[in-house]
């Protein structure tokens, strides 16, 4: 096999617009109510690297932001895959993805970020409920690749609503598929067994499943159980698709950032050079203090609390939710 190194034609060209806006290159129905989207850079270049458990923020029309776990192959540098469940009663997020978003469309993407990393262990137990399989899918592939001892318990309402069963079949009896209409509620105690050290338990799914997991793991050693909850509602202001102003407190200048430009480039145009490096929101070099306004964070660095503080941003990729941001520049 021959891989190609595609050298950037001009390294000084802004890469950030490229990594923050991706094109839908494939859309497939994976189960009743579940589609996957494959996303790639319009230029076909490398995307930001990610690790199992990571999610991206999709910025949908109207500035609605939704988080979806990456469930594709991390060794493919050019494509992200997300699995999206059609939520009953959805008005914007998943309904838009299922009914409107089509191959060829562009979509704003933040991250990837990982609040649910796979920590090193020789033994893993994975418990997925419904669409909660998505972050666990890259994890089980990785556990398998590392030669770890692992099992996956995968529950769903009914077999035809459960995505990725074909892919999981390759792992044989490491995977227990338990549709509720066939086998009833998940037997968590039976699957987990006796509390013991040296095991990491990962679970993702609806709130009642995670609550049951917390109870089932109560007597296990601390830090055994790691869970991820779906955060369906984004509390902040919607992301802006319109231009916004950036006021530079120290310089006294104001610059307008158009949708096609990054804050970093807009600053450069008025002679304010902010040191940067990766131009992808991953290295942290261009960290800039925010004095007022709410940034639209598109980086892969800040965790949720740090984002909510609204006190700093990475200007190579992050934008503004408000009409005006004030930066300490």
């Amino acid at each position: 096999m021959t891989a190609s190194v595609s050298a950037p034609a001009l390294a000084s060209a802004p890469a950030s617009a490229d990594v923050a806006t991706l094109r839908v290159v494939d859309k497939q129905v994976r189960a009743d109510g579940v589609v996957t989207l494959d996303l790639a850079s319009p230029s076909g270049g490398r995307l930001r690297d990610w690790t199992p458990g990571a999610h991206v923020d999709l910025v949908l029309p109207g500035g609605l932001t939704r988080q979806y776990s990456l469930c594709g192959d991390r060794f493919d540098p050019a494509t992200y895959r997300v699995g999206v469940l059609l939520e009953p009663g959805s008005r914007g997020g998943s309904a838009y993805v299922h009914r409107e978003l089509a191959v060829g469309d562009l979509v704003g993407v933040g991250g990837p970020r990982n609040n649910f990393p796979l920590v090193p262990s020789e033994r893993y137990l994975f418990v997925a409920g419904g669409i909660g399989i998505t972050p666990l899918l890259p994890m089980v592939r990785q556990a398998e690749a590392l030669g770890a001892d692992w099992r996956l318990l995968y529950g769903g309402r009914e077999r035809r609503s459960m995505a990725f069963l074909d892919e999981l079949a390759a792992f044989g009896d490491r995977v227990l598929v338990r549709p509720q209409d066939e086998t009833g509620l998940l037997d968590l105690a039976g699957f987990l067994g006796r509390p013991r050290p040296g095991v990491r338990v990962y679970s993702c799914g609806p709130a009642p499943l995670l609550a049951a997991m917390e109870r089932a793991c109560a007597d296990w050693p601390p830090y055994t159980l790691r869970t991820e909850r779906f955060v369906a509602v984004d509390g902040g202001a919607p992301a802006r698709t319109a231009p916004f102003e950036v006021e530079l407190a120290r310089t006294g200048t104001t610059v307008v950032v158009d949708p096609g430009s990054t804050v970093l480039d807009a600053l450069g145009r008025v002679g304010v050079e902010v040191l940067s490096s990766c131009r992808r929101g991953v290295c942290g070099t261009c960290e800039t203090t925010v004095l007022a306004g709410r940034p639209d964070h598109r980086d892969a660095l800040l965790d949720d609390d740090e984002r909510a503080a609204n006190d700093c941003m990475y200007v190579c990729v992050s934008r503004s939710r408000d009409e005006r941001l004030v930066l300490d520049l």
Partner: peptide
């Protein structure tokens, strides 16, 4: 050269 060094540094797969 910069372009090839930069590309090789980022391409951990290759």
């Amino acid at each position: 050269r910069y372009a090839e060094v930069h590309a090789a540094l980022t391409d951990w797969q290759g």
